[in-house]
């Protein structure tokens, strides 16, 4: 813990400018993650740029029927928005399965995307961690790995991204709007988070001072409204991070004689350093019959690349089971999962 300066930004450009001069500065939005880190000594910024006054707390409809979600929209408000509930119920469910009511009331859309891993070693400054202290080593390797990655990890880091919302946004093909030194840029949500490689200290592709101003949701389609969901498998029913989660949208061919898949959009949480878009499974499912066998094969193909470590081998089976179960449910094959998301 060390003393820091504090400024309150009046507008996004001002926020970006305040950061530009201070390489050790950090943005403060909901504070649900950063404030813990300040106390625990995980990070020690010398300046906090408070975003609380920015006019970014609205959800607006876009001309194409999509939604523009301001970066300061609270998780609770986004989950409760009638348009989100109607057009993207998967997103609403993902939000409500995350954290607790109190935290969702404070956490913001932008902050949720940029929250950091809950790897116990990252959060404990008395242990080595390449993400917190580059070059110090990865304590999770050979340690407590229950919440760690099975896909896309590296020898330097096996941490997972903890967000539920980001997993749904990945499956939704959402777009992130970013304001930087050199103006506004837009990138697909799936391109925001990085795999750890040999730079695990970098969670995302954003540069210092880049400010997420909004997340844009594409116009809804019938499938997103009716055949989409988010399922989170965890060690307790609420207030626990995902062991594995699945966000999925399934589009069936209305003209086919037998139930046939037109397209599937699937993302996994709890398995990688980033929300994991299951492209390989999606490719296999496009045009395939909507049967349990198809879903099983697609899930198995996606997890073929899984490299679990000692202590999280179960996640491969669990991820396959969860994917198969969710897709079967969306195809109307299984009985409804009776577990309702948290209220």
């Amino acid at each position: 813990m060390r003393p820091f300066d504090y400024v309150r930004a009046d507008d996004p450009a001002g926020a970006v400018a305040a950061m530009a001069e201070r390489p050790d500065a950090a943005y403060l939005a909901g504070g649900t993650n950063l404030v813990d880190h300040l106390k625990l000594g995980i990070t020690a910024p010398d300046l906090l740029v408070d975003l609380g006054r920015l006019d970014l707390a609205d959800i607006e409809e876009l001309p194409d029927g999509g939604l523009r979600v301001g970066a300061m929209v609270r998780n609770s408000d986004l989950a409760a928005d009638p348009r989100v509930r109607r057009d993207h119920p998967m997103l609403s469910r993902a939000l409500l399965s995350g954290a607790s009511g109190q935290l969702r009331n404070a956490a913001t859309t932008g902050g949720n995307l940029l929250q950091r891993t809950r790897c116990v070693y990252f959060q404990d400054p008395t242990t080595p961690c390449n993400k917190r202290a580059p070059g110090s080593g990865c304590s999770a390797l050979g340690g407590y790995t229950r919440y760690h990655a099975i896909l896309g990890a590296s020898d330097a880091c096996i941490a997972t991204h903890p967000s539920d919302m980001a997993v749904a946004l990945a499956a939704l093909d959402a777009t992130v709007v970013v304001l930087g030194d050199d103006g506004e840029k837009r990138l697909p949500l799936t391109a925001l988070h990085r795999l750890p490689g040999d730079e695990p200290e970098r969670d995302t592709v954003l540069e210092h001072g880049d400010l997420i101003t909004a997340v844009e949701l594409p116009p809804p389609d019938g499938a997103a409204r009716t055949r989409s969901t988010y399922r989170k498998i965890r060690d307790r029913a609420s207030y626990a991070f995902a062991l594995v989660s699945v966000a999925a949208v399934l589009e069936l061919d209305p003209d086919a004689a037998r139930p046939t898949i037109l397209s599937a959009r699937i993302a996994l949480g709890g398995v990688a350093h980033a929300p994991w878009r299951a492209r390989r499974a999606e490719q296999l499912l496009a045009g395939a019959p909507a049967t349990r066998e198809s879903f099983r094969r697609a899930a198995a193909a996606e997890l073929e690349r899984a490299r679990p470590v000692a202590g999280n081998e179960f996640k491969v089976t669990m991820a396959q089971g969860a994917m198969g179960s969710v897709l079967a449910e969306l195809a109307g094959l299984g009985e409804e999962n009776e577990d309702s998301p948290d209220e």
């Binding site: 116990v120 070693y121 407590y144 609420s238």
Partner: peptide, 12 residues
């Protein structure tokens, strides 16, 4: 190492 109430689970 799971020394807080987010990582050490008690029932809710």
């Amino acid at each position: 190492v799971n020394h807080d109430l987010a990582e050490y689970h008690v029932p809710v």
